[in-house]
Design a binder for these strands. Structure first.
Lengths: 233, 233
DNA sequence: TGCCGCTAAAGTGCATGCACTTCACGCAGG
DNA sequence: CCTGCGTGAAGTGCATGCACTTTAGCGGCA
């Protein structure tokens, strides 16, 4: 529902490209995204680039301030916590809808994905982060609920952003085993266990990600100061 | 985060206006929204109108098909069910965050809102639907979680759309009393009871809204046929 | 040296123009 | 009377242009 997979849809293309760049941390939080550069890079006019930025902004991935260059958002620590809270609720819902109802083909699909995750385990961490995220989106898509897919995608992308901000350098090799366990439990049909598993899985991720701010975590000054700046108005 | 309350932000203005028009059912599902008409009506160029439509589309309120006039979405019955499911989860989360933590000023604010609902009870049903919806959004906003606010707003708006499609003519005078009960329980701090109340409140709304399609519910042919059309591709 | 103000360059906000697509109406044929 | 088709009108997709805002860097002044 965000935008169709229509190959002619240029703004959709750009959105996907940028989302992917962001999720793989090729574009770090705070990176500037000037309309013309984008347009030039993708071979379209500013108009289109602008439209794409609008989309991404509505997904919470870029920040759009009037008369200012768009930037990749820098989620606050509080934002991050909120997002994880919501994510847990939504993914529990997904698990509830899915437990015991997956067709063999779907199970196979999931296992194939996890295999890909394992394969990428020793590769660049950007890829494994992306795959881990896509696992959750894949799961969501099996509910056949476009709305759920959209929200979980959005949230999962934003969690990636958060990870690149707050998480310890090498915590990214997050629970592939947990993914496997979830698939198995889903297949077995034990709703409660599946929900608990998903809950603790996400809890793990959140814990790895959300090491308490401990102010000067190498991040840009302006980000560190953001909360204080809020006080002044 | 969707768009700032900046008064200079024309596309934000148009979005708000259209959202409100949709929520009050001045624009029914299926209504066409040509860019130029919109632009003319709001005194801006097509460019801006177009941008606004893009926003609304990403919120799931309008449908945007390539080279075709944008229309107010016509949610399918299944969509409606999904949306209510998600809504329940999110609002339960809200209640959990809020129970026992509301400041007196916030309680007062809520009660004032309910009073307004009561006042509008005998007025046009469009207004009371809007107020009922805004009650939930107000609640969400008290969590101070922008993401939560955004999602609940979006979902609530879409529920309104659904209502105008599926609900019986005069079911709109939905539980003002239930709103009051929720406020009271929230104040008392009984998390479980508050969650149960909210759950049943939404369940009520959903039941009133989602009378099983029973095919020819006066709706347009094309809508009835939509699911069958899906089979063909 | 260090700081402040000024100015050109870079960037955004928005409207308009042109090419292409879809839509709606009327007309011919069954 | 209904159906199928062709054509102009209506509408979208996209690029470009101009006015205004922000930014960054330079030169003057302390």
């Amino acid at each position: 529902m965000p935008e169709s997979p229509n190959p002619k849809d240029k703004v959709g293309m750009i959105c996907r490209a940028l989302r992917r760049a962001i999720i793989e941390q090729a574009l770090e939080p705070g990176t500037k995204l000037p309309e013309d550069s984008l347009g030039e890079r993708f071979g379209v006019s500013r108009t289109i680039a602008r439209h794409a930025l609008g989309q991404l902004a509505s997904e919470g991935l870029v920040e759009l301030r009037r008369n200012r260059i768009a930037v990749v958002v820098t989620p606050s620590w509080q934002d991050a916590r909120d997002i994880f809270d919501i994510r847990m609720e939504l993914e529990r819902l997904i698990v509830r809808k899915l437990a015991g109802k997956l067709k063999p083909a779907q199970i196979a699909r999931l296992k194939a994905h996890v295999a890909a995750e394992q394969e990428a385990h020793d590769g660049p961490s950007a890829v494994s982060i992306r795959l881990a995220t896509e696992f959750h989106i894949l799961l969501a898509s099996m509910t056949n609920s476009p709305v759920l897919v959209r929200y979980v995608s959005e949230i999962a992308y934003r969690c990636c952003l958060t990870l690149s901000l707050f998480s310890r350098p090498h915590s990214s090799e997050c629970g592939i085993n947990e993914h496997i366990a979830i698939i198995d439990t889903l297949q077995s049909g034990d709703v409660d266990k599946a929900m608990a598993l998903m809950h603790s899985h996400l809890g793990e991720v959140a814990n790895r990600a959300l090491v308490e701010p401990s102010p000067a975590r190498g991040r840009d000054l302006v980000d560190v100061l953001a909360p204080y700046a809020d006080e002044t108005r």
